[in-house]
């Protein structure tokens, strides 16, 4: 899932400093699971800003709503009436949700409450780690199910580099060396010989380097 984290409240406050009535839109998708932009966080953020603005003697009126998903037009239609009265919309979704709102509500000032961080999952309650680099051309079958694109700090395909020591990456003692993990797992699976193949440079056109991506499934398109 997409992992996001809330921006500092003062930064969000600055984005809407000239607004009197603001709609806060949460998202029940990924950002609810990672505790960044669900219903609870939306209510807390709205009330934090109300308190903040009250203390500044510039009270603000807030409206809150949590969409099933902000990355789906059908779930933001419900906002059509709510947006009429407000000066701005604060989205607590990932960057996709913010853009869907901005696109639908063309005359509204739409701002992000979250920083969209990465694709990953929880490793324990309150800790999330990056697992996928969205390269568009998965290589996990070559690397024992451990992604070298995003979990190796250099995205090396034929690692490890000379900076790997005691299982850790040269950038930090807190970062595991992905290639140590790959080596250990391939050894355990008895597939170390697979690592002897020199992996060629990737085709980065399938990643962001090829320009904005689009996926099409003609078989499920309607009309």
């Amino acid at each position: 899932m997409i992992i996001a984290q809330q921006k500092p409240v003062k930064d969000i406050a600055a984005m809407i400093s000239d607004c009197n009535k603001v709609l806060f839109v949460g998202c029940a998708g990924c950002v609810t699971v990672c505790l960044a932009g669900g219903e609870k966080e939306t209510e807390i953020l709205a009330s934090s800003l109300r308190i903040m603005r009250k203390l500044e003697h510039k009270p603000i009126e807030t409206v809150t709503f949590t969409a099933t998903r902000q990355c789906d037009p059908e779930y933001i239609v419900a906002l059509d009436n709510m947006v009429q009265e407000v000066d701005a919309i604060v989205s607590l979704a990932c960057g996709v949700g913010v853009q869907y709102l901005a696109e639908r509500f063309k005359d509204k000032w739409v701002v992000p409450a979250l920083d969209t961080k990465f694709i990953g999952g929880a490793t324990e309650h309150g800790v999330w780690e990056e697992k996928c680099g969205l390269c568009g051309d998965c290589v996990l079958h070559l690397t024992g199910g451990i992604c070298p694109i995003i979990r190796c700090s250099k995205s090396i395909l034929n690692g490890p580099c000379g900076g790997s020591q005691y299982g850790k990456c040269e950038i930090s003692k807190d970062v595991d060396c992905a290639w140590q993990l790959i080596y250990d797992r391939m050894t355990a699976l008895g597939k170390l010989d697979k690592l002897m193949e020199i992996q060629p440079p990737k085709d980065w056109t399938k990643s962001r380097d090829g320009g904005p991506r689009r996926a099409v499934r003609e078989d499920v398109m309607i009309g």
Binding site: P201, K202, D203, W204, T205, S207, D209, G210, G211
Partner: peptide, 13 residues
Amino acid sequence: DHQKFGNHPTSKN
């Protein structure tokens, strides 16, 4: 120019 136009179109930018 974007690398798409060159002789190494699969490279990173």
